[in-house]
Nucleic acid binder design. Structure first.
Length: 115
RNA sequence: CAGGUUGGCCGGGUGAUCGCGGCCAGCAAACAGGCCGGGCCAAGAAGUUGGCUUCGCCCAGCUUGCUGGCUGAGGAAAGUCCGCACUCCACAGAGCACGGCGCCGGCUAACGGCCGGGCGGGGUAACCCGACGGCAAGUGCAACAGAGAGGUAUAUUGCCUGUUUCGGGCUCAGCCCGAAGCAGGUGAGGGUGAAACGGUGGUGUAAGAGACCACCGGCAGCGGCAGUAAUGCGGCUGGCCAGGCAAACCCCGCCGGGAGCAAGACCAAGCAGGGUGGAAGGCGCACCGGGGAAGGCUCCGUCAGGAGCUUUCGCCGGUCGCCUACGGAGCGGCUCGUUCCGUCUGACAUCCGGGUAGGUUGCUUGAGGGUGGCAGUAAUGUCACUCCCAGAUAGAUGAUCACCGGCGUCUGGUCACUGACCGGGCGUUACAGAAUGCGGCUUAUAGGCUGACCUGGUUU
RNA sequence: GCCGACGUAGCUCAAUUCGGUAGAGCAAUGCUCUUGUAAAGCAUCGGUUAUGGGUUCAAGUCCCAUCGUCGGCU
């Protein structure tokens, strides 16, 4: 679990991102993003029943959460992000998931230039 | 040694770096609160009271961050198939309906669970399996085939008797043989079917048949012995036999009120109502208001009457109470019973429309775990000591790396005779994630440890 | 978390009441018709009734377990 200030919790917020946000697709994961008025970025992780049973869904969300946590300092603040698991993700290794997440963040131009 | 049966248990370990949830302690910041002092404003004659302000002080609230300590998934956490606790509905009621269970005894909070026993079936055996009450209460069902499918049934094959006709033969008023028809007896044989009204042997007969007899099987009734019981063993009598299906309706016995932690409680925030349907009468030295009739007293009076006060009696309206009736809700199949609300200022129902879906609590100390003793064949119970062992909230126990294990396979060496030990390579390390808790059942599961027992072979 | 329904031919559905030879339409294949195609007509093919077990003489139907799909409830 991320720190609670970085969690996107309420169903209404997630619904707003899904309807009004932009999306980028990758075979393992889908990224939705929308700017908020805060000075931090918040994240939500979604895994539907099509991904698998509880173990697979938890595993997928943990991998995504770890990828986001590692790169948290490089992500621009002030965005609400929703990451949706696609069915192939639970079979992937952590390295593939991490590269997928960084690719999506680069395409969305949400990474800040690191010195 | 090989094969098999069955019970119990485990289900990776160590370390490093980064990270997460809960509880406790400390520190810091912000907010709320309190207090005293100060300042300003208002009221008042004044003591004083009220408000604001932010400066100082306080910490028992709450939020965030940091630091430290402790702690953090399962044997099935799963499926949700049963049972309970707990909560609300009324205090959990009665009857019917409906549903579940179903050999006997025990265990348990309870169970469709477990233990022990009985019976039936399978297996050489260890052992395994069984919805295992009742079809001689009633109703119903059985395709096709078959004469007949449940009734003291049934005949176009068969067997037998009588009779008629025809043919043949002979020792010729007749007898014998064969065929066909008709009438009668019969259900033994053949045959159909999943299933055909006991089996074997005999008596008997025209042919036969439980028609009769003996034995056997099965059934019913009544005793006996063993057992708490299911049941087992054995005896007497009876009638000759009563078929299958109740996971067919049903009967019998036992159990079950409904909903579920998304139960329930509290706090905060927010909103807007409207349409339709909709069930009443009576009583009261009760109260209020209005108006009427009769009587009494006082005053005025032109002796027509008028005004005021007061008593009694009806009437109308309303309030309150009671009674009966009706309507509705609790009450989720119906009736009774009961509690509450309401009967036109209308309970409630229904339709349209509007708002919210945030937080706290319930929330983990419990039919609890471990060790040992005792009772019991066992399930289980009990006693003593000891331990505290997840409580998240879109959901924490994760990511990466190294080493060590386990297993499979290939291969090198040593001992030795197809195994053990020492190495190496490759592969593999399952099923699966708490969500109120607990007792079971069912299903999934890489691999491993261990107890007991059976059969066969060999050796002694 | 709770409740309910369903699974039959490649597709859409019957037959399940009260157990007795699993059917229909479309599709596919072949033939006729046509110069050819379509349409039409005739014929054929196609099913372990989701899976496993049980009751029964007999199971798509009755019972139990499992798997999957869909829907509803705050």
């Amino acid at each position: 679990m991320l720190q609670s200030s970085h969690r996107l919790r309420r169903p209404a917020d997630i619904q707003r991102v899904r309807q009004a946000g932009n999306s980028w697709r990758h075979p393992l994961v889908i990224l939705l993003a929308r700017s908020n008025s805060l000075d931090v970025s918040r994240f939500a992780f979604v895994a539907s029943r099509h991904v698998g049973k509880a173990v697979k869904r938890n595993r997928a969300k943990r991998l995504l959460r770890e990828s986001v946590r590692v790169h948290l300092s490089e992500i621009q603040p002030g965005w609400d992000l929703v990451l949706i698991v696609r069915p192939l993700l639970p079979q992937a290794a952590y390295g593939e998931v991490e590269t997928a997440v960084t690719q999506l963040l680069q395409r969305a131009k949400l990474l800040v230039e690191h010195p």
